[in-house]
């Protein structure tokens, strides 16, 4: 059999491999790698996106530690289903934030009622609000500062310092500073069960779907 076809196939293979190799080397040597803070934020955002339920223990100012549960869910408002978050604290405080315009709070202590809702949602680790902000800042590669296992960023008028597990990048604690309030807390991701959903949506003026 003639060697011609083998030579043709061999040369074609070499050319294709050269293109593959050169293309890779050009990209590897000329394109930068995204800043580590953006990559860390992305990992943290992925954790927040993976869970809809977060349990927290936090303190506002010098106040006592409260335990909270934040559920990210669909709620029916005015006959339409909207995404939202329900944060329930063991003090009896309930905060409901449903897009686009529903924000209701009731119960709890005077300090909790006086604290800006965004600060409470952040301290409660409400996943969607934090995931969206982290993903946006990671996409834009700006507004993120990483110091060791801590990621600092702002969300509207609040300054957040998110502490991450060094190995997995799992968010474990956060500190929120706003103009009129300050708080620190720990968060833990949990799995949503029907019982928890019923418990959290109990007495809410809108209904989880």
């Amino acid at each position: 059999m003639s060697r011609g076809p083998w030579v043709t196939a061999g040369v074609a293979g070499v050319i294709a491999a050269a293109v593959l190799g050169t293309g890779f080397v050009v990209q590897r040597t000329s394109l930068p790698v995204p800043p580590p803070a953006a990559q860390t934020a992305l990992r943290a955002a992925t954790w927040f996106q993976r869970y809809r339920l977060v349990e927290s223990a936090f303190r506002i100012g010098d106040g006592p530690t409260v335990h909270g549960t934040c559920l990210q869910d669909w709620f029916t408002v005015g006959g339409h289903r909207h995404r939202g978050a329900a944060l329930r604290l063991d003090s009896g405080f309930v905060l409901l934030a449903v897009l686009p315009h529903t924000l209701q709070a009731r119960g709890g202590t005077i300090v909790q009622s006086a604290t800006p809702p965004l600060v409470l949602l952040e301290l409660g680790g409400c996943p969607r609000v934090l995931a969206r902000r982290l993903a946006t800042l990671a996409t834009q590669r700006r507004g993120l500062t990483q110091t060791g296992n801590t990621l600092a960023f702002t969300l509207k008028a609040t300054h957040i310092r998110l502490t991450l597990d060094p190995r997995s990048g799992l968010p474990v604690a956060l500190r929120v500073v706003a103009r009129d309030a300050e708080g620190v807390g720990r968060i833990r991701f949990a799995t949503v069960t029907t019982r928890i959903r019923h418990h959290l949506s109990r007495g809410l003026p809108v209904y989880g779907s």
Binding site: G4, T8, V11, A12, G13
Partner: peptide
């Protein structure tokens, strides 16, 4: 054959 290989490449 070699030129053909470059073309296929």
């Amino acid at each position: 054959p070699a030129a053909r290989g470059v073309a296929v490449g």
